[in-house]
């Protein structure tokens, strides 16, 4: 025994997938009782970008962690408007894990998310606006600071503004400082907001290493 050399494919089971890999077959397998079959269906559906809606629908009800991860990987690979449109409603889910997964997925789709960001930040539900700000926290998009600045200029909800201020501490520049300075006045100089704004301005100006 000891070290032996074998062909890599033949010594392991090359592929466990024996079911049809066409679009219709994969969509059926996405609902299969076996998590392994659902996971492979989710991964292989990356070849069919028009299945984004079905993948998002499955994500909403899927409980198996590896299957959820496969669904998210495929959705991020597919990208584009259909994926963003399918993921956006899931930010309203009561399931915090799902919401966080969706936030992380949207963060990886900056170009596709950008046309929707303005609408997301004007949603009537303040929680939804906060989750949209969470998306902005790690969105590689040059407009992120401007979107956040607009939020603190207009949003009437103190928690939404505080979330935006928090993210601006990371992504904001000196141009944000005048807008930040005026913010506590919109909330009767609320002490919590004053504290948030001062801390953020210190970080932007580099006084708080």
């Amino acid at each position: 025994m000891s070290l032996v050399k074998k062909n890599h494919a033949s010594s392991g089971n090359a592929d466990h997938r024996h079911l049809p890999r066409d679009r219709a077959g994969l969509l059926r397998q996405l609902q299969d009782a076996s998590p392994d079959i659902r996971r492979w269906a989710a991964l292989d559906l990356a070849a069919f970008p028009d299945t984004a809606e079905a993948l998002c629908a499955r994500l909403e009800q899927e409980t198996g962690l590896p299957v959820r991860e496969a669904l998210l990987t495929t959705l991020i690979k597919i990208g584009g408007n259909a994926v963003v449109k399918g993921l956006m409603p899931l930010l309203r889910s009561e399931d915090a894990t799902l919401r966080n997964e969706v936030i992380e997925a949207l963060q990886q789709l900056p170009e596709a998310v950008s046309p929707y960001m303005e609408t997301m930040l004007r949603d009537p539900d303040p929680d939804y606006r906060i989750f949209s700000i969470n998306v902005l926290a790690n969105l590689r998009h040059p407009q992120a600071p401007a979107w956040l600045q607009a939020v603190i200029e207009r949003d009437a909800d103190i928690n939404v503004c505080a979330s935006a201020v928090d993210v601006l501490a990371e992504v904001g520049g000196p141009e944000t400082v005048p807008v930040l300075t005026g913010l506590p006045g919109r909330f009767d100089n609320d002490p919590f907001m004053q504290f948030c704004v001062q801390a953020t301005i210190r970080r932007i100006q580099g006084h708080d290493a």
Binding site: S2, V4, K5
Partner: peptide
Amino acid sequence: VDEYDIELVAS
């Protein structure tokens, strides 16, 4: 080491 077949694949 001598009790098992050990396959080393490098890619």
